[in-house]
Write a protein that binds this DNA or RNA. Structure first.
Lengths: 107, 107
DNA sequence: CCGATCGTCAACCGAATGGTTGAATATGCT
DNA sequence: AGCATATTCAACCATTCGGTTGACGATCGG
């Protein structure tokens, strides 16, 4: 079983993909434009975008020939809740922590 | 090149390893005790602990026969800074964001 | 010293990852 | 229609990953 959290963290565990997300912070971009700064084939970037899409971190919408990539920051919320519970326990509300614990240990 | 951030996120991209970290929230544990709840060989758990150690998320100290595993939540700070910049931009101080951007785009 | 316990190492396996290239598909332009 | 652009698909390759098993080294207890 590969959970949503698995896919999110796996997607983030690659510098190319993190750089893509960072680029998308500024604006939506076409696949070709995303690929431009990288020393890598378009097909490789297309795969990376697929991984980011499956992880829910971006969405892709095709308009005409062009497929636009859009950041979906909401998808990181689950990961944020998880990761923050370790470094910033004090800043976390207790309900979320309980839920996270029971889910992680019980599932 | 595999950065610290790569290793951190990769380490977190596995349910078994996240469960181990969760267990270690409660207390330090010996390798054997970490392995006990999992339906998996001790060697497999030992590998997982090695990955977590190399990522800096835990430390291991051998006392006698027993190797104690200790959570190192501080190692997640870099990951937290990175990930929060997407979901909670408004909560981020600007200096950290600038640093993160120049590091990620410039490196 | 002996036997049990703790943990890692080495070799192996199948599946997934990150990349390539070349062909295919879909759309737009003239 | 015909060519160029945008993107994906399919096949392939080397490497890594997550697991196994069996042997091994280190340490404790009697």
């Amino acid at each position: 079983m590969s959970t949503a959290l698995d896919m999110t963290f796996a997607a983030l565990a690659d510098g190319t993909r993190r750089a893509i997300l960072t680029m998308l912070l500024e604006d939506d971009m076409a696949v070709t434009d995303v690929a431009e700064p990288f020393d890598m084939s378009l097909a490789a970037i297309s795969k990376h975008l697929g991984i980011l899409t499956r992880a829910g971190l971006i969405s892709q919408e095709k308009r005409g020939r062009v497929k636009w990539c859009k950041l979906e920051p909401q998808a990181m919320r689950e990961a944020i809740v998880w990761i923050e519970s370790f470094g910033q326990l004090e800043a976390l509300n207790f309900d979320a922590f309980e839920q996270f614990l029971s889910k992680e240990l019980g599932g």
